[in-house]
Computed example of a mutant assay.
Amino acid sequence: MNASSRSTVLSLGSINADFQVRVDQSPGSQETLLAHDFSRLAGGKASNTAWLAARFGHRSLLIGRVGDDDLADQALGPLRDAGVNIDGVTRAKGQQTAVSLITVPPDAKKQIVLATNANDHWDEPAMLAMEQLIGRTEAPACLVADCEVPAVVVARAVEAACARHIPVVLDPSFPDRVPADLLPQLDAITPNTSEAEALTGREIDGLEDAAWAARQLRERGVRIACVKLGDGGCVLDAGGGAIHVPPGDVQPTDTTGAGDAFTGVFAVALLEGLDPVDAAAWGVAAANLAVTGYGSKPAYPDREQVASMAARIRQNARCLDAEG
Rank of each mutant, 00 (worst) to 15 (best):
residue 234 C to E: 07
residue 191 P to L: 00
residue 287 A to L: 00
residue 113 V to W: 13
residue 160 A to T: 10
residue 106 P to E: 15
residue 82 A to L: 05
residue 221 G to K: 06
residue 262 F to D: 08
residue 32 T to H: 07
residue 179 P to C: 02
residue 219 E to R: 03
residue 52 L to Y: 04
residue 93 K to G: 10
residue 164 R to V: 02
residue 151 A to G: 07
residue 310 A to C: 10
residue 70 D to V: 11
residue 2 N to V: 02
residue 58 H to D: 11
residue 262 F to Q: 08
residue 283 G to L: 05
residue 81 D to M: 04
residue 298 P to D: 05
residue 206 G to A: 03
residue 132 Q to H: 14
residue 322 A to L: 03
residue 164 R to S: 10
residue 135 G to D: 12
residue 188 A to R: 04
residue 22 R to M: 05
residue 72 A to E: 14
residue 225 A to T: 00
residue 85 N to F: 03
residue 157 A to S: 12
residue 304 E to F: 02
residue 162 C to V: 04
residue 80 R to Q: 10
residue 216 Q to T: 14
residue 305 Q to L: 03
residue 22 R to D: 03
residue 208 E to I: 12
residue 139 A to W: 01
residue 65 R to F: 02
residue 56 F to G: 00
residue 199 L to P: 01
residue 261 A to Q: 13
residue 5 S to Q: 14
residue 1 M to R: 02
residue 136 R to G: 11
residue 171 D to K: 07
residue 117 N to V: 02
residue 162 C to Y: 07
residue 319 C to A: 14
residue 205 D to W: 02
residue 95 Q to H: 13
residue 312 R to M: 07
residue 62 L to A: 00
residue 35 A to C: 14
residue 8 T to V: 03
residue 311 A to T: 01
residue 18 D to Q: 11
residue 214 A to F: 08
residue 188 A to V: 04
residue 173 S to V: 06
residue 209 D to S: 15
residue 140 P to Y: 15
residue 284 V to F: 06
residue 9 V to N: 01
residue 233 G to H: 04
residue 266 F to A: 07
residue 187 D to W: 13
residue 281 A to Q: 08
residue 262 F to H: 12
residue 309 M to F: 05
residue 230 G to C: 02
residue 222 V to E: 00
residue 83 G to S: 06
residue 313 I to L: 10
residue 277 V to Q: 15
residue 190 T to S: 13
residue 259 G to Q: 10
residue 285 A to F: 00
residue 303 R to L: 10
residue 3 A to D: 08
residue 240 G to M: 07
residue 19 F to V: 12
residue 111 Q to S: 15
residue 269 A to Q: 09
residue 121 H to L: 01
residue 276 P to H: 04
residue 150 P to S: 15
residue 269 A to K: 12
residue 297 K to D: 06
residue 174 F to L: 10
residue 71 L to C: 11
residue 211 A to H: 10
residue 39 S to K: 07
residue 85 N to S: 14
residue 31 E to K: 03
residue 160 A to P: 08
residue 73 D to N: 15
residue 185 Q to G: 01
residue 69 D to M: 09
residue 211 A to D: 07
residue 221 G to C: 10
residue 105 P to L: 13
residue 256 T to K: 09
residue 256 T to L: 10
residue 187 D to L: 13
residue 33 L to Y: 08
residue 110 K to P: 02
residue 36 H to N: 13
residue 143 L to Q: 05
residue 76 L to V: 03
residue 257 G to R: 11
residue 192 N to Q: 11
residue 30 Q to C: 06
residue 4 S to Y: 03
residue 303 R to E: 11
residue 267 A to F: 09
residue 28 G to I: 04
residue 116 T to V: 09
residue 21 V to L: 05
residue 23 V to T: 15
residue 2 N to G: 06
residue 36 H to Q: 13
residue 195 E to T: 02
residue 119 N to V: 04
residue 6 R to F: 06
residue 146 D to C: 14
residue 13 G to W: 01
residue 288 N to I: 05
residue 118 A to M: 12
residue 218 R to Q: 05
residue 16 N to G: 08
residue 278 D to W: 00
residue 156 R to C: 09
residue 258 A to C: 15
residue 238 A to M: 08
residue 9 V to F: 04
residue 77 G to N: 13
residue 316 N to G: 03
residue 305 Q to A: 15
residue 281 A to S: 15
residue 292 T to W: 00
residue 88 G to I: 14
residue 120 D to P: 03
residue 78 P to V: 12
residue 147 C to Q: 12
residue 219 E to G: 08
residue 32 T to F: 06
residue 239 G to D: 11
residue 228 K to W: 05
residue 247 P to H: 09
residue 156 R to L: 05
residue 46 A to C: 06
residue 261 A to Y: 15
residue 253 T to E: 13
